[in-house]
Every structure is written in structure tokens, then in C-alpha cells.
Write a protein that binds this DNA or RNA. Structure first.
Lengths: 349, 349
DNA sequence: TTGTATGCGTTATCAA
DNA sequence: TTGATAACGCATACAA
């Protein structure tokens, strides 16, 4: 089979072609397709057959222009390389798919400044709604959405005072809870390896949560115990290495993601540190990798799939019935595993 | 700030609004925006200012209808949960972004039957080109693409006789090479844990490659040594468990992905098997997780990022200049690590 | 239940 | 260099 080059693109069959073939009006064909119960069963049958025969496929742009909406929602995330975002997008798309909505993607690479340009690109493409990441957005973005009259909803963090409706758990509460668990297990020297707090509001809230927990027992996080990395393996290992080499190594580390935690654990092994005896490791687990470590890692799982599903449902209700978008607070969970427990439990897997 | 409900959507500003404000024709504004050097510098400046002032954003559907193309390409993949696909999409989108093309997503969940419906949904949305996964596609899909006059290109496997242009390495060759390496290191009882071969052409080719290598030394893969799983952790561990429990356990396992390999390694640990002393493990690494295992895993890295970049470049050339799409064969690499080498190397990380 | 006519926002063609 | 006008393919209000 030759690879198609064909520059003279055969024009696709249109509604009119179908109508002409049947000797009926285009309007009837249109109705038969979009509002089947407005035409006679007989006509509908004939139309369906002609459509099949001609291989007719509706022209999305024309439909959109004629007022039916584009039936596409835009999603702006930092990067698909992080499992949680991939999971969100997949789950969202699965839900929207059933209502015949498509998903257009925009990546910021984790740079908040790029959110505006990405949203704008999506708006130009004619999206009907937009899903953003986190609860920190430039006024410029909010204004753009408002001007365009676009429904928007944010994933991954719940904040009561968010500017836009949002779906997720409260990252500060979850982090506080996780730190609390560590404290109860005798760890008061808690460090964190996180995505940059300057550009990530979930990171900021988690740090705040951990500090809250420490403050309650009259402690504080040491300055050198808050390290940032880009979330990938090399920089994560480097961060752990710095932590180990620091004057006052921690006896527990909370990692922003399971990938970071895996890297940290590998680095501890390399340094001869035993988990959890010498150091405890816990994480917010994105891709379910936490349990694959030896020992398995205690973690707060991020319900990306649920978030995607909920947002999908809300968007459909909003776009099809005008229902208002609403924030949803998801309760976080705490999966306790061997990496934070002293004793013999930690080596069974 | 109140959550927007506004059902009476303020109509967005159009080209005409800009023209009216300036007292010039819409045609001129249009030209000023899409073919800047066809209007006077003065007009262009005025238009640009008015556009900014009014917050005008071009309407993609109208543009598409008027003949400029939709500037969107569709990508059909099994699932974003697998890192390689996420990486492909991200890389592709980054490339297309610069040429102002968007990316629409379709998921098959790994069921080849769903490819047709997904491609169709994308075609209805008005894509200008489509990227598929692998080199095995229903005739129905090929016909749909042909009817729609849509350029298509496939990612992740190179086959000289593919029906469509494709970009990737030859999975059979790579697998043979990997098996060869194991054989050279004294392993002739090679097993595989793979995605279902019935629905995954890369899996089929890899199995064929391994069998080829074994045949060359007069061996064959035992019937019970070819296990399938869904690629996620639980079923991967289960597969490894079955392998260990089988009458004739292998002395090497080639895993379809790094995630599967990680699960397999964990299962070996649980069973008290030492890697690589008792059993070697190697994989095709999707998300770069292979090196995080203890010991690090030998693997063939999947160049998803490169594939995405190359496909992006080709699509842009095709869509903007009518250049033909061409298959690109990428040479695979073999990253040898501790998991397949006997000796003292294997525990350094 | 069906047909006719009109408009959606933009680009392309043709004149000016 | 600019303006007027006609498509583009479809959905809808209105008429029949």
C-alpha cells in the first residue's frame, strides 16, 4: 500500500450529499441525525442507510459554528510524565467520551507563567470548558476565562476559598496528617523533598501542613530540611543525597511523589541507611509505586481517577443542563506501610 | 469570587467587532491577523491594538470552516497510565504546539476493536491527521482514514511492510538482541511476562524475537514460560508468582515494561530469589524506572520522546507543506545493568 | 413530519 | 492596500 501523499484531498461527503441522494432536504437529514425523534421512523431508516453507504461524517467545525458547541473541553496540566496527571486526563476523557465530548491538552511544564498561554491556545481552539491544575492562578487567566464565558474547574486540591470550583483533598490537612503519623511513630526530625513551592500550590500547602504538625509538638522544620527537585529521578536522588550529607540528617522524609520517594529510598540504600530503622520515608503516591519498594512505602494516595471522574460528571451536567460547577472535597486516606513503622513488619515484601 | 453560573453566556467578540471599532472591513482585519504582510504597517498596528483592547480571540471553528484547517491532530493510544504513551503525547504536543497545532486524545484501553470508534470520534471532531499506536490496524480503520483523506502515522514499532508510515525501533530485533544478551550471560531458560499478544503487535514481535534467539541455540521457550498480564502491578506480580510456582522456573525473565519488571523483582524478593544469582530480569523500559530497582535492571529503553518529536516534525511538514510522511527506523539500545550480570556489580545502587 | 431560509465567524475571490 | 461578497457545512426558526 502506498503512503498517502494525495495533495488534492477528495472533499468529504456532506449533509447535502446525503440529502440529495435521498431526494429530501438537508434540514431533515440534520434533524434525523441530531434529534431522531423529530422525524418519521421511515425517513430515519433511509437516512441512516444513506449515511452508512456514503460514509458520511458530520463536520465538527460546521456544527460548532452553527451553534451546537464544539463538545471539547481543555485540560491544562504541568506534564503527562507525572502519573497523576496522566491518570486524571485518562479518567476525565473516559467520562466525557460517553457524552461525546473530546479532550484537548495543554502543558505548562510546571511553569505557572505558561498557564495563560496554554489556556489561550485552548480557547482559540474553541473549547467549551477548561480544567486547570491546582488552586493558584493568575488574575489574567481568570479574566480570560471570564471574558470567554468559559466554565472552569480545578483539579487536585480542595480549598474552601478557591477562586474557582475545585475537586480534590485538602493538601495541607493530608500532609499534616501524614506528619502526625510520623511523629506518633517517634520521628520528629521530618524533612521534605518536594516540587518547587514557588510554582506549585499543592507543594506549598503540604509544607504548611507538615510545619503545622511539627509546631504542635513544639518543633520546627530545619532550614536545610526542605529540598526541592523537579520530580524526576536524578534530581530526586540528588536531593536525598544532600539531605544525607547535611549536618543534621532527618529521621523521616516526606516526598512529594512516589517517584521521588523511590529515588530517595534507592539513595538511602546506596548510603547504607536502613528504612525504617535509620530513616522513615513516606509520600503522596501518584502512580501506585509506593508498595513496590522494599520496604513498601507509607503514603497518601492521590485519587486522580476519582477527581477525573467527578470533574467529568460535573462538566457534562454543566454543559448539557447548565448545572453549576461545585467544589468537591475528597477525604484523603493514609496507607501505612513498612517504611514508617519500626519493628519486623517492614521486610515482608 | 462567586463560582460562575451565568447561563446567558456573553457572546465573544468577533472579527466584525474589531472591524467596526476601527471603521474598516472585516476582511482587512482578517488579513492583518493571518497574513500580516498584506496590509499596511499602520493598519496592522491599529488592528493589533484593537484586538488587544477588545480581547478578541479568533474562532477556530469558523476558521476551520472557511478553509484554514482545524489545526488539530488526533492521537489514539491504549492508555495514558503507561508512561511511554504519556511521554509520546507530551513530546508530540510540545512539538505541534510551536506550529499552533493542538492534540486531541483517544484511548482504546488496549482493545484493538475500539480503535475504529476512537478514530471515528476524532475524525468527527475534525482532526487534520492521526497518530496511531503500533502496526496492526483493522482494514476498517485504514478505510476510514482513506475516505477522510487523513494523513496517518504509527508510533512505537518499525516494520518495513507496515500499511502506514511508522516510527520506532523494530521490536523483534530489539527483543532478539536482549535475549541474546541473556544467553551470552548463561541464561537459556528465558521466560516472558508480556501484555496480551493477541491485542498488542509489539508484544507479538518481541515474543517472536526472543524465540528466534532461543532457536539459534537450539532451545525453545517452554509453554508455561510465556505469561500475559495487564501491565499493572497486581497482575504482574501474579504472573511472576505463577512463573516461580511452575514446575520448571526460568533463570531469566524479560518483561514487557519496567513497571512489570519492578513488580516481578518485588515478587522474586518475596520468594527469596536473588537477582541476578537465581534469576535475571530485563525489560523494555517505559518510564526510566529500571535503574531504580535494587539491583538496577537491564533494559531496552523505549524512545517515546524521540518518536513523539519525529512524528511531530513529520506531521507539521506534511500539513504545512504537503511533504509525504515517511517511516523512520530508530535503532534500539541495550542498557546493561546489574540484574542480568553475575558477579559483584549488581548491588552497588 | 418536512422544507425553506437564514445565520454562525472566518477566509478567499474579485474589484476597486 | 483595501472593501464587498460569496462560500464553508450545519442547525434552527419559521412556514407549510
Amino acid at each position: 500500500m502506498r503512503h498517502r501523499v494525495r495533495s488534492g484531498e477528495a472533499r468529504a461527503t456532506t449533509l447535502n450529499d446525503v440529502a440529495r441522494l435521498l431526494g429530501i432536504s438537508a434540514a431533515t437529514v440534520s434533524r434525523s441525525l441530531s434529534k431522531p425523534d423529530m422525524v418519521s421512523a421511515k425517513t430515519r431508516a433511509r437516512v441512516d442507510e444513506a449515511v452508512r453507504k456514503l460514509g458520511y461524517i458530520p463536520h465538527a467545525a460546521a456544527r460548532a459554528l452553527a451553534g451546537r458547541g464544539h463538545r471539547v473541553v481543555g485540560v491544562v496540566i504541568p506534564s503527562l510524565r507525572f502519573g497523576v496527571f496522566a491518570e486524571l486526563v485518562e479518567s476525565l476523557q473516559a467520562g466525557l467520551d460517553r457524552a461525546a465530548f473530546g479532550v484537548l491538552l495543554g502543558h505548562t511544564g510546571g511553569e505557572p507563567d505558561r498557564e495563560y498561554e496554554q489556556v489561550r491556545a485552548l480557547v482559540e481552539r474553541g473549547i467549551d470548558a477548561v480544567v486547570l491544575t491546582g488552586n493558584s492562578h493568575d488574575l489574567e487567566v481568570l479574566r480570560l476565562l471570564d471574558d470567554a464565558g468559559l466554565p472552569a474547574i480545578c483539579a487536585f486540591d480542595f480549598s474552601a476559598d478557591a477562586a474557582l470550583p475545585c475537586v480534590g483533598f485538602d493538601n495541607a490537612d493530608a500532609a499534616e496528617n501524614l506528619a502526625q503519623h510520623l511523629i506518633e511513630n517517634g520521628r520528629d526530625g521530618i524533612a521534605m523533598i518536594t516540587q518547587p513551592v514557588a510554582s506549585n500550590d499543592r507543594a506549598r500547602k503540604r509544607v504548611a501542613g507538615v510545619k503545622r504538625a511539627l509546631r504542635r509538638i513544639g518543633k520546627a522544620m530545619r532550614p536545610g530540611h526542605l529540598l526541592e527537585c523537579d520530580g524526576l529521578l536524578p534530581s530526586s536522588r540528588e536531593a536525598m543525597r544532600d539531605l544525607i550529607a547535611s549536618g543534621e540528617p532527618p529521621n523521616a522524609v516526606i516526598c512529594f511523589s512516589d517517584l521521588i520517594a523511590l529515588a530517595a529510598a534507592a539513595e538511602c540504600r546506596a548510603a547504607g541507611l536502613r528504612i525504617p530503622d535509620d530513616i522513615a520515608i513516606a509520600d503522596f503516591s501518584g502512580v501506585g509505586l509506593s508498595e513496590i519498594n522494599n520496604p513498601p512505602l507509607t503514603s497518601v494516595p492521590i485519587p486522580a481517577k476519582d477527581i477525573g471522574r467527578i470533574i467529568g460528571e460535573q462538566l457534562i451536567a454543566r454543559l448539557e443542563e447548565g448545572a453549576p460547577l461545585e467544589s468537591v472535597r475528597i477525604e484523603h486516606a493514609l496507607e501505612i506501610r513498612g517504611s514508617t513503622l519500626c519493628g519486623s513488619l517492614q521486610t515482608f515484601a
